[in-house]
Amino acid sequence: MVDISLTVNDRLYEISIDENMRLIDVLRDELGLIGTKEGCGEGECGACTVIMDGEIVNSCLVMGFQANGSNIVTIEGLKKDGKLHPVQRAYIEAGAVQCGFCIPGMVLATKALLDKNPNPSDEEIREGISGNLCRCTGYNKMLVATKKAMVYMKGE
């Protein structure tokens, strides 16, 4: 067992975990944050994407102990005071949500992109979500959603 402390969605956790736990296991099995999904377990699909110290990571490829001292945002951390994040709102309105399994990772990848670059080009948007596989939509709705979110975020 190993002791770690990490901040997840603005809350500090001090926990003792198995050395061989991945960050996704810590989030889901220890902290009960089941919004983070596992699609492949080998960093291909991006369903387990979380934001770690401002950067998106595949939480299946980060060991739990490596997250010691880090600041993590999961999908549960976006809605604040009952209000959806602009990216969440835009995804709903654009019809970018179908089966939903890629959506937590996709929404976080979109948020991380817009936090760094508030005016991405179409190509930059495609690049920004290129690590996230979706098997339902064909990605065009994510592009539409991201453009909507750009506008909403400027209005805030």
Binding site: G35, E38, Q88, Y91, I92, E93, V97, G100
Partner: peptide
């Protein structure tokens, strides 16, 4: 008409449950 799907909000907030959850 643009109809918002009934489960969209649960899916963008991570509340939607799949069996593994």
């Amino acid at each position: 008409k643009n109809i918002i799907r009934v489960d969209a909000e649960a899916k963008v907030t991570g509340e939607a449950l799949y069996p593994q959850d």
